[in-house]
């Protein structure tokens, strides 16, 4: 518990960071920038887990352990995403998200 800080304050900060991530996702064109935005969102969510665990369910560990899992999965995801970005870069010599539209109908 942080003195003088309630759960709402922490969750509000996390919300702001999350929406900044969303904004980045919507406005950036570069695949790596998109990845960065996603990481922001993911981190904000982890903060929520931790804060809820700490403030609302202090007798339990589930939020804690979930945040550990999220971190692990995020690490895996980033590794995979970067591998994909490199492969795409080799293919197209570009990592602009808008160039990746071969699935267009």
């Amino acid at each position: 518990m942080i003195d003088g800080v309630g759960v709402y304050d922490i969750v509000a900060v996390a919300t702001i960071v999350f929406f900044v991530g969303v904004f980045g996702f919507l406005t950036r064109k570069n695949l790596i920038s998109l990845l960065i935005s996603i990481e922001l969102m993911l981190n904000a969510v982890v903060v929520n887990f931790v804060a809820f665990n700490k403030y609302l369910y202090p007798g339990r560990l589930d939020g804690y352990i979930f945040s550990l899992f999220v971190i692990a999965v995020a690490a895996a995801e980033v590794a995979l995403a970067i591998a994909l970005i490199i492969a795409l870069y080799r293919l197209d010599n570009s990592i602009e998200a808008d160039d990746m539209d071969s699935l267009q109908g």
Binding site: M1, I2, I32, L35, I36, E39, N43, V46, V50, A51, K54, Y64, S67, L68, I71, A72, A74, A75, V78, A79, I82
Partner: peptide, 23 residues
């Protein structure tokens, strides 16, 4: 600040040390 030192360590190691560097 919340007293989750281990989690903070993991955050530093995996995110700051691993993911950020990877990016």
């Amino acid at each position: 600040m919340m007293g989750y030192n281990f989690l903070a360590g993991v955050q530093l190691m995996v995110y700051s040390g691993g993911i950020a560097v990877l990016i």
